[in-house]
Design a binder for these strands. Structure first.
Length: 318
DNA sequence: CCTCTAATAT
DNA sequence: AATATTAGAG
């Protein structure tokens, strides 16, 4: 007991900045993502009821809305929890918490064929808050006026989301920006994705060359995520692709995908804007790690997901 | 402006 | 080692 989510609505009357990105409060935390793709309603049912199977949500649109929402929301969520506030490395401000001794998520090549749908039920997790401040060498500005964002930690879950999105976009449309938007992870930046994408691509290439497994040595991260077969396509003909003209106006993508991820609630009329939201560091972790010695989870809470640090300051520029 | 690849820095 | 950053070409 003791779960009190307090969403205060500050108006910032004085001039203080309090911004905590906790839109995840009532959302399916980024930790447990629902199955990717797949219509929520089987075609048969849909047909029977004459309902359209997810019209044109072009997922991009939806996600875009989510992004806007996030940006808009980012301000007014406090969580006074007495949970453990750990601070990791000097630069990695990642909070890790995960269900401990229970079945975790799917870590296996669970490639569902097409009609299979066995999804386990999971409760929505909440988010935890984390603050960190470790300016390397220099001074500690009480104002905390410029801080570097902590390194993003690509946990298997996060990576999975990444892979899922990439797989669904098709190698062709899987470009940093789109991926980032579709992943819909708070704080994820284009560069984050770009960097990871680069590495991921290299990994794929490496794997292709040696079609044989290389179990022992390989990135554990990538190794634990099965590579979707849709990840090779040239474009053009195949089944997927389509040309994604880059019209900014962007009506919608040629991707007939239903809806990969859980769009945050609420929406705001906003076409598109820059990406000034800050706060970042997504953390979510699951069980085994490398052989280091990571001690922690003392609290053993089942909370864990996005971590952002309350800087309040909006760099607004980057 | 955005992406890609490679090299480099932390 | 894992990410971030930068450079330079497209």
């Amino acid at each position: 007991m003791g779960e009190e989510v307090k969403i205060a609505d500050y108006q910032g009357g004085g001039g203080d900045d309090e911004r905590v990105s906790e839109w995840e409060l009532g959302l399916p935390s980024a930790a447990d993502l629902p199955p990717l793709s797949q219509a929520l309603i089987p075609p048969e049912l849909a047909s029977a009821f004459s309902i359209s199977p997810e019209p044109f949500r072009t997922l991009l649109d939806v996600n875009r809305a989510s992004q806007d929402t996030i940006s808009a929301i980012r301000g007014g969520a406090s969580q006074a929890f007495s949970s453990s506030n750990f601070q990791l490395d000097d630069r990695a401000t990642v909070l890790e918490a995960d269900a401990a001794a229970f079945a975790d998520e799917e870590l296996e090549p669970d490639r569902d064929g097409s009609g299979s749908d066995s999804r386990k039920l999971r409760k929505i997790d909440s988010t935890a808050e984390e603050a960190d401040s470790a300016a390397p060498p220099a001074n500690d500005d009480p104002s905390a006026r410029s801080m570097k964002r902590p390194r993003l930690v690509w946990t298997p879950q996060l990576h999975k989301r990444f892979v899922d999105v990439v797989a669904h976009l098709g190698i062709k449309n899987a470009v940093p920006k789109t991926i980032m938007q579709l992943m819909n992870v708070e704080g994820l930046t284009r560069e984050n994705v770009a960097s990871h994408l680069q590495k991921y691509r290299l990994y794929l290439k490496r794997m292709q060359g040696l079609s044989n497994e290389g179990p022992s040595s390989s990135d554990q991260l990538f190794a634990s995520t099965p590579v979707p077969q849709s990840l090779h396509e040239s474009g053009g003909g195949g089944g997927g692709g389509g040309s994604a003209g880059h019209s900014h106006g962007n009506g919608h993508l040629p991707v007939p995908i239903p809806l990969p991820y859980p769009p945050p609630p609420a929406m705001m009329p906003m076409p598109m804007l820059g990406m000034p939201p800050m706060g970042m560091t997504v953390g979510n972790h699951h069980g085994f790690n490398s052989l280091g010695s990571q001690r922690d989870w003392s609290g053993a809470n089942k909370f864990g997901s996005v971590v952002s640090y309350p800087h309040g300051v909006t760099p607004s520029d980057k």
